[in-house]
């Protein structure tokens, strides 16, 4: 009997002490609210986890209308340029000072469509995200505006900085707009699967001496810092900071680097088309 009371008493005392410590922590103000310093790792993980789950849950009943419509994407870009670029920037485009100092940092949206569906993107735009500085853009805008924006944000995934500039000019210029690829062009993923050989690609990367300049996971490279490491290449978004990383662009880059980035140190090694597809296959499988 006595021990039971002792346990209850110990429990109450420790609960009280924990509460008092919590109150003191809040009262003293040690917790650093400064946006310039990062969250600690535990906080960050909880926030990211909560964000993903909450958005997926709340957007579950939305159904996107036809999104691959050039007119919709062009309208979406007009809104994007006015409302989103301030904080999120765009490929090669500046953010406003408002967007630079935010915590969490407003992510570039080029990869948005890899994390979120068109419906989830629309939900985020319409409702905003608490504690993240993301405003609810649904206020005062029509449903169509939100879907237009979502369509353009999805298109950002395949856009190069140069194309973005052309599209900016085309917002006012109907004749120019006719010439541009508003809907994402073929990326070559299907062809990569069908025609190329990963193992052969690996051998070729070795034979062409790519590891002389690049660190390539899976292939021995010693102190190769002439070019950037090709680690985690599957997830890499840009090639040479110039075009989106997809099979067609990567093959073009391997064969004719100068056509993608003028003045680059990457040499033209006279790689045949077939060889380039195989090399691209190996590179695009690197996940470490």
């Amino acid at each position: 009997m006595k021990t039971r009371y002792a346990i209850i008493l110990a429990f109450l005392v420790s609960a009280f002490l924990a509460g008092a410590a919590g109150a003191m922590f809040i009262d003293v103000g040690i917790y650093d609210l400064a946006a310039i310093r990062p969250h600690n790792e535990v906080e960050r993980k909880i926030i990211m986890f909560l964000k993903t789950n909450s958005i997926q849950y709340h957007a579950r009943d939305l159904k996107a209308p036809g999104m691959n419509d050039p007119k919709r994407i062009r309208r979406g870009m007009k809104l994007f340029h006015k409302q989103c670029q301030v904080c999120h920037g765009a490929p090669g485009q500046d953010r406003d000072i408002v967007g630079v100092g935010l915590n969490p940092n407003p992510p570039p949206l080029v990869k948005a469509s890899e994390h979120w569906s068109a419906e989830e993107i629309a939900w985020i735009i319409e409702n905003g995200i608490k504690m993240a500085g993301m405003p609810a853009f649904g206020l005062g805008q029509s449903e169509q505006d939100i879907w237009d924006l979502s369509a353009f944000v999805t298109r950002l995934n395949t856009l190069s900085p140069e194309e973005y500039k052309h599209m900016l000019l085309a917002l006012q210029d109907d004749a120019l707009a006719e010439e541009l690829q508003w809907v994402a062009p073929e990326q070559g993923w299907k062809k990569l699967k069908q025609v190329s050989n990963r193992k052969r690609g690996k051998r070729l990367l070795k034979r062409f001496g790519c590891t002389g300049c690049h660190i390539i996971p899976g292939i021995r490279s010693l102190n190769s810092y002439g070019g950037p490491p090709l680690t985690n290449w599957k997830k890499r978004h840009f090639i040479a900071g110039s075009v989106a990383n997809n099979p067609i662009n990567l093959v073009q880059w391997i064969r004719f680097p100068e056509t993608i980035n003028k003045g680059t140190m990457m040499p033209n090694l006279n790689v045949s088309e077939r060889d380039a597809w195989d090399m691209a296959n190996y590179l695009l499988s690197i996940e470490e």
Binding site: P228, P229, F238, G241
Partner: peptide
């Protein structure tokens, strides 16, 4: 989105 900047001091070029 861009290249890794790990071991930056060893890298020979900026932006190629």
């Amino acid at each position: 989105i861009g290249p890794p900047l790990t071991d930056w001091a060893k890298r020979k070029y900026i932006a190629g």
